[in-house]
Design a protein around this nucleic acid. Structure first.
Lengths: 209, 209
DNA sequence: GTGCTTAAACTAGCGGCGTAAGTTTTTACA
DNA sequence: TGTAAAAACTTACGCCGCTAGTTTAAGCAC
């Protein structure tokens, strides 16, 4: 087939298919040939629309980050805004866990990531935090959110019960996987609570740097 | 060459070379052929000592985690122990950043990882935290530590100043990379402080579940 | 309308990847 | 001393990202 009368591919179609493939089968499954197959096309044809595979994956990351609600930074106290944003971010990553390793390396040049950084940092600055502290708080929130999204704590423990025979306190660790949601959600909620309440305490004491 | 009079490879030599290669050039550079070359051997020879590449990488992760100081859980108050352990863990990961993605998926079946989980969880249980809360706190610490080790927050922002023209609060974001250590260390220290002091407050109030 | 440039598909192929299979030689033990 | 296991080798398979060159259609200038 040479150039078709109607283009088979668009950037949007490619990104959509890549996102679906990554969600369904993981980053490794999303090879250029496989992705092309999903789109009914040969592998190298994708290079007519993206220069590299990294650009495609980046575009997927972009649409995922764009789903995070940053409107909460308007009209809310910085504490409440931070909490709502973190929950939204966490929920988005929970819905697309396979792309998290890409996001964990930072906003890079992605508009949605930069817009999010702008919103978070701006809100903290406007609240009166020093530039250094606002940066730290932003980084810290990212550590918590991506750290929790990156690998399930509960699933990090092998399910083989015998493995824990020699670790007296871990004798029920093989049950963690069954309570995955409660464990991982509970830890995230606790972390968010602890961080925001203690930041709030400092703030109220006037310690903003 | 057939079987040599003196074995060219041992598990230890392979793991040592793999660790050095990963530290120096990253996970991607550590291919079976490349690793074999470093050891003066052909690629498939490695399979006489390890069944898969994953086993080699896992062994590297094991020796890295084994460097974390878990002796601090003996003879220290749980708060102080947690703080000292977290700093040690953080320092180890900072010294071997390229292996962090492997650790971030959890202890799996690695003895050092399990021993660490045992020490942390055991200390929290012994201090009087409920099983659920001890699990949450352990997970939370891992989120903070691996989250901060995984990707530098400071380096996550592209160095191109023009990129930030349309983000009023980010106009100095391109300078972050230059202060990478201060930013990343400051955020981690802040997070550790906030988490431990607020956990300590709850604990002192008798809220241990 | 004709001709030129560009776009978007194709096929073929390069070097690298993890790993399987089979070969050769040495070592260790019955 | 004969045999089995160990540890190196070579060869090869099917993936991978990506490049080069080809073909045909589309869009635009004159």
């Amino acid at each position: 087939m040479a150039r078709p009368r109607q283009a088979l591919l668009t950037k949007e179609r490619i990104v959509e298919a890549a996102a679906a493939l990554i969600d369904a089968e993981g980053l490794d499954a999303c090879s250029m040939r496989r992705l092309a197959t999903e789109l009914g096309v040969q592998g190298p044809s994708l290079y007519n629309h993206f220069a590299t595979k990294a650009e495609i994956v980046d575009a997927v990351a972009e649409v995922v980050v764009a789903q995070v609600d940053i409107s909460v930074f308007h009209g809310n106290d910085w504490r409440e805004a931070l909490r709502l944003w973190a929950k939204s971010y966490h929920a988005v990553l929970a819905a697309h866990p396979n792309i998290v390793p890409v996001l964990a390396t930072g906003p890079g040049r992605r508009p949605a990531g930069l817009a999010m950084a702008e919103a978070v940092y701006g809100a903290l600055i406007d609240a009166g935090w020093s530039r250094a502290r606002a940066t730290h708080i932003g980084a810290l929130m990212r550590y918590l959110i991506t750290g929790s999204a990156l690998g399930s704590f509960a699933l990090g423990f092998d399910a083989d019960p015998e493995l824990y025979d020699h670790y007296p306190h871990l004798h029920r660790a093989h049950e963690l996987a069954a309570h995955r949601d409660a464990v991982d959600e509970g830890a995230f909620q606790l972390g968010l609570d602890l961080l925001i309440t203690s930041l709030s305490d400092r703030y109220d004491l006037g310690v903003r740097r």
